[in-house]
């Protein structure tokens, strides 16, 4: 049985842990609201761009002369998985879920006889993926030096990917990240980003009237493709930051509750042994008095 002093010490240490987890939970809740607002604000641009891309893509035919980003390299042997993770921990199983989804996808591609490489965004995915595929890391992108990864980071990632693509390092790129469903659920999502899959042709805003293009459709499309890629990466960065805060909030809520339970248990134990000590003392005094 631990001594009273030891028990007291343990209770105090659990209490300070609880304070930390509680603070982190509240910080995550505040940041989550901000991240959600940012994700919301990014939606109009993405929607408009997708609808423009859709109506453009439905008007031109994909041929040899089409931009490489749309037509592909003509082969699908080498795949690149762009895995977006968080930079910080304390967010429950979020990162390991993303890594699990990426590894499953990679194994599936390898089983089909394809070659797979990884491009890792965020710190937390590096170690586990390196452990699984030590020789397949094609590149890293560090987002930890900025407070909040934004559009500029998405631009840099896109530029790096396009350079690799044009250098012929891979044929198909997939993006793996977590979509934010709620504070309790973040789904690992995987989608193809390169070559750019043509978005569904939405009914165009012009209502079927003849639209004039300046310069022509293909030139506009060629300009919009990299922009569309950036937007998708930006979306992934926003989703991951909302997911991180959501997961962190839930994980810290659990931790705070666990700490509370532990404190209760320890306090009961502490009181019992205190009472036991008092009882023994009393028995000793009474026995001593009777002996006189």
């Amino acid at each position: 049985m631990a001594s009273l002093k030891e028990l007291k010490g343990r209770i105090n240490s659990v209490k300070s842990t609880q304070k930390i987890t509680k603070a982190k939970q509240m910080v995550a809740a505040a940041k989550l609201r901000k991240a959600q607002a940012a994700a919301e604000a990014a939606r109009p641009y993405a929607e408009r761009l997708a609808s423009v891309m859709g109506s453009l893509a439905s008007r031109i035919t994909v041929s040899e002369s089409s931009p490489k980003l749309l037509a592909g390299t003509g082969s699908d042997q080498r795949h690149l998985l762009v895995v977006v993770n968080t930079d910080k921990g304390l967010c429950g199983g979020l990162n390991s879920n993303i890594v699990k989804a990426a590894v499953a996808k990679a194994k599936k591609l390898i089983a089909e006889g394809k070659k797979v490489e990884f491009f890792l965004v965020g710190k937390k995915g590096r170690a586990p993926i390196r452990r699984n595929f030590p020789d397949a890391i094609a590149g890293n992108f560090d987002t930890s030096d900025v407070r909040q990864p934004g559009y500029e980071e998405a631009e840099k990632i896109a530029a790096e990917l396009v350079t690799m693509y044009e250098a012929g390092k891979f044929d198909v790129a997939h993006l793996v990240y977590a979509t934010f469903k709620s504070a309790l659920a973040q789904d690992p999502t995987e989608q193809q980003i390169m070559p750019v899959p043509t978005p569904e042709a939405a009914p165009s805003a012009s209502g079927g009237a003849v639209v004039e293009y300046e310069p022509d459709e293909e030139a506009i499309l060629a300009e919009l493709l990299p922009r569309y890629l950036k937007t998708q990466l930006f979306g992934a960065l926003l989703e991951i930051s909302a997911s991180e805060q959501g997961a962190s909030m839930t994980a810290m809520d659990n931790a705070t509750r666990n700490a509370g339970e532990l404190i209760q248990k320890l306090t009961i134990q502490y009181n019992r042994s205190r009472q036991a000590a008092i009882t023994t003392e009393l028995v000793e005094i009474i026995a001593g008095a009777e002996a006189l």
Binding site: V52, S206, A209, V211, E212, Y213, E214, P215, A219, I220
Partner: peptide, 19 residues
């Protein structure tokens, strides 16, 4: 400031796309 020259848009402009 369109790619091929500036253009003004008033209400009722014909459907148009430009970089």
């Amino acid at each position: 400031p369109g790619e091929e020259g500036e253009f003004g848009v008033l209400e009722g402009h014909a459907p148009f796309m430009s970089t």
